[in-house]
Amino acid sequence: MPFKYVFILFCYCVLQSSALFSQNELYKIDQDSSSTWTLFKYDVNTTWQGVKYSFTKPLDWKGKDFAKLGGLIIGTATLSLADEEGRRFFNRQQEDFPNLVRDFGWYFGSPQNYFMANAGIYGFGLLTKNEKVRRTSVLIITSSITSGFLQTIAKNGFGRARPDTGLGRYYFKLFSKEAGHHAFPSGHTILSVTMSHAIAKQFNNTWTKIGIYTVGAIPPISRLIDGAHWLTDVAFSTALSIIVVDSVDKFLFKNESHGISNPKPNKRITWNMSFGANKIGVIGTF
């Protein structure tokens, strides 16, 4: 099928970009005598420590952290007022939206394909002993485990009806096992945004970042076009993915994972949630 080749081409481009940047000081190749097995065990342990950190971090939250959580919840609830209009808008785009793009969005956001892609990225980093690529893959898998677990609990717990069921934006069937009641949050969005945000963090070029985020936006947009999710499902999932990736990234830098220390602040992208009486959004500063 055509979309499979598009997906494979995308993964190939990621690996080639990693190889290219490994030639400068940002991507240093591990030249020590550590065996591949030793490096693998180190990465597994780092992933485990990162996951533990992610789930225990809320125990150290302060007032501003709870305020951000409250803002996210309130912002999502406010945005839900536009869910019906959003559904009608995306429904009107179905006929003109390219099938190839829709197929790619579904394929890339599916768990089995997502983890296959990350396995390829990690395998490349491990075999070449590329510290930066290995660290990026650890960031992706750690963040995916964390956000994936949270979305699974929420999806089954809330039991929100999908748009294509016709039950409405505020229909919830708690703890439902029916696929039609697993709208919130969006699993495809969480996986695609997690990977794209983690990879984009590794580049300094603004246009490269924009290109990566554009590819990462395809799955959530495709799911909206397909009527599988409400706008709030995608918005909340995007915010959750960004928060988790940034948190894990800070943890890795704090512990100088893979011997990589935090770069200068002006060379990194920062994301902030913006909420107000008549606005909600995610602001990225390059």
Score class of each variant (00 low, 15 high):
E178W: 01
F253E: 09
T208S: 11
H188F: 11
Y213T: 05
I190V: 15
A183T: 03
F172G: 04
A239L: 07
F253N: 10
I221N: 15
S247R: 10
G211I: 01
H229V: 08
P185L: 13
W230N: 12
I218T: 09
T238L: 13
L191M: 10
T214N: 02
V215P: 00
F236T: 00
K209N: 07
Y213G: 09
A235P: 03
D246I: 09
I199F: 15
A198N: 08
N255M: 00
G259E: 15
F203A: 12
I243V: 09
V215S: 00
S257K: 02
F175S: 07
K209F: 04
K254G: 15
H182R: 06
D246H: 08
I210W: 07
T194H: 10
T238N: 10
G211M: 01
P185F: 09
A183L: 01
A239N: 07
G180L: 06
I210T: 11
H258E: 14
I190H: 03
T232N: 05
T194P: 14
Q202D: 06
I212R: 05
L231A: 03
K254V: 07
F175Y: 11
I260A: 04
A228L: 05
K173G: 02
A239P: 03
N255H: 08
A183Y: 01
F175L: 11
F203I: 09
G227H: 13
A228V: 03
E256R: 00
L224Q: 09
S247N: 10
K209H: 03
A179G: 03
K250L: 15
L224C: 03
H181S: 00
S261C: 15
L224G: 04
H182V: 01
G227I: 12
R223M: 15
S176D: 11
K254S: 14
V215A: 01
S241C: 10
V215K: 00
L252I: 04
S186F: 07
Y171L: 05
T208G: 12
V234C: 14
W230F: 13
E256Y: 00
G227F: 06
N205P: 12
I242M: 14
S192A: 15
G211S: 00
F175A: 13
G187M: 00
K173Q: 04
P219F: 04
F203W: 14
F184Q: 07
S261H: 13
G180E: 14
A239T: 08
